[in-house]
Design a protein around this nucleic acid. Structure first.
Lengths: 336, 336
DNA sequence: GTGAAAGCGCTAACAG
DNA sequence: CTGTTAGCGCTTTCAC
């Protein structure tokens, strides 16, 4: 294994000069820097991560905490993860994957052993049990999602309330007067996951403001459940002409179910969704949707974390504004 | 931060004794061990990961290499990942997430910096460009999937050939004589991913052996593509009564498409799949399937890796035998 | 069964 | 602008 002293000798400088040439933490003359860089390349030198972590008390590793509870849409989680890794690498950091089997102990463990420098925490609940720990840990963290009390924490997410509002307002503009929200599985609400609730808030507030009749329907993530909800809606709300879907897993079967029940989309029923663009684009009827910007959220989360690691201040709350794309699933209300 | 010398002082022993009490690498008297353990607990001592890695040249971190190419089913990848993390933790290891943005350089980097001790490599292609590197790296690796030439490597996967055979044999036993395989997206075959090809091999071989008429149909991972394949099959193979599906994303829409085209499952058409049990169970018509044992593969992969890290020998190839579960989607051929 | 001490490879004062 | 050097906290010979 080639080490820093080998490089130093080869370049005719001291180890500290090599170290500083690498870190840029003090000025190095153009000439020696080039010589050091050449030696590094020639010898194929790679600094030992452990030695570095020990000497600098920085591991350059972030922990990504992925609980993977029931009712979450896995592809979205994966997109987050990929974008977190990609962005972390751009900042010369690696990513340690932490699932929730160990619970909060896992967080404490990797923090206490100095395995990681900071945390990206996903799937945050309104009353998340990890909050006290994250506040007490001496390492910075960024949460993807908002708890009820975010005091002293850094959070980022799509503005789900505004997303819910945007969907309703879009339908209202098209003349729809009776709308329904088909939401996440019941357990997601029971668990008090913030984002699901905020969609409901936005949906309801916008409907009330616009004097639309509205109702909310949690829905399991199975095609069968989707069909049931479709039937129920038709039965109980015959005047319904606008639907907002906030449940990736059942978007496709729900649309199919409505059509099988004799409703044409968008002629008889307008449908909008809050979901990844990729999903909305690829259905048989492309769906007007507010994008779930997983990649952007992951990227921004890591960038916030990097600023915190540099002891810079960051906003406590970052809400990404909803971005709606009109596709083939919404149309003006068919007034007979 | 509490360190090993603090614990040593508190317990009235030397640092090395604390270290050995922790690692068990040399005998410690019951009495001192208990005293050391008590001190550790009392002081809340956690060994510094970097210091440990530096002194022992073991980081106790595995790299999980997840390429995330097009055409792979994300939930399955996630299941692998979770099971890899869980099993690694059981063996006192953590998991670093490596996507393929960096390509092979990423592997080399984390190996050369001693960030990780070993690799779990997913989504292996028949002619995988990472193979030479993995062979040359001084760190052990286990591949999930089989390349064309696995010489000198350790591989594990479901026996996809046997899985393809099992599906055909099941249909043959039920009296079906004309069968089709609806496979993965074309890019998966073009890329020469081993598992997709092996399903085709097994499917075709078993069909030939049983003198069944058979055909193979790659299919994009979209509902629209599923509908097209269904229509095509009905048009071109009117005698078709048995279908094997190896494409998680389109299983549900394909079944729906067949039924909308007037075929009842299983009365007119028997369907079997190679997919996660969870998917097969939750369709409106539960599907007879060979399980994709993601969790087991991930677990076994890590266990192989642990044996290699202990310099024990392991089999080069581990093929998990297919396990078929009969559900509601297959029935004896309806002989009019 | 236990202790002393020499590193592991790097960073960051401190010194010039 | 560069070199010298003292650790960072742990493991592991070597010695008893």
């Amino acid at each position: 294994m080639v080490k820093i002293t080998d490089v130093a000798r080869h370049a005719g400088v001291s180890p500290s000069t090599v170290s500083y040439a690498l870190s840029g933490k003090r000025p190095i003359s153009e000439e020696t820097r080039l010589r050091v860089e050449a030696s590094i390349r020639e010898l194929g030198y790679r600094p030992h991560a452990g030695a570095r972590a020990l000497a600098s008390s920085r591991s350059n590793v972030l922990a990504l905490v992925v609980p993977l509870r029931a009712g979450i849409h896995v592809p979205v989680v994966m997109q987050f993860a990929v974008s977190v890794v990609t962005t972390a690498r751009r900042h010369d950091h690696d990513v340690l994957l932490l699932t929730q089997e160990e619970g909060e102990d896992g967080l404490r463990r990797v923090a206490d052993t100095a395995l990681v420098d900071a945390f990206v925490v996903m799937d945050v609940q309104l009353d998340d049990p990890r909050l006290p720990l994250l506040r007490s840990l001496e390492r910075p963290s960024v949460m993807i999602g908002f708890p009820a009390d975010a005091e002293g924490l850094t959070c980022i997410d799509l503005d789900f309330k505004a997303a819910g509002e945007a969907c309703v307002e879009h339908l209202a503009r098209l003349g729809h007067r009776v709308v329904a929200l088909v939401g996440s599985p019941p357990e997601v609400y029971v668990r008090q996951t913030a984002f699901a609730q905020r969609v409901v808030q936005g949906f309801t507030a916008a409907a009330d403001r616009g004097r639309l009749a509205s109702s909310v329907h949690p829905c399991e993530a199975t095609p069968a459940a989707a069909r049931e909800v479709a039937e129920q809606l038709l039965r109980e709300q015959p005047a319904l002409t606008g639907v907002v879907v906030h449940n990736e897993a059942i978007l496709e079967p729900l649309v199919e179910a409505f059509e099988q029940l004799g409703l044409r989309v968008p002629a008889d029923l307008s449908i909008t969704a809050i979901c990844p663009d990729e999903l909305a684009e690829n259905l048989r009827v492309p769906i007007t949707s507010v994008a779930l910007p997983s990649a952007e959220v992951g990227e921004r989360a890591v960038e916030l974390l990097m600023r915190k690691l540099d002891s810079k201040t960051v906003p406590e709350a970052t809400l990404l504004p909803p971005r709606m794309t009109e596709r083939a699933s919404t149309a003006p209300r068919n007034t007979p």
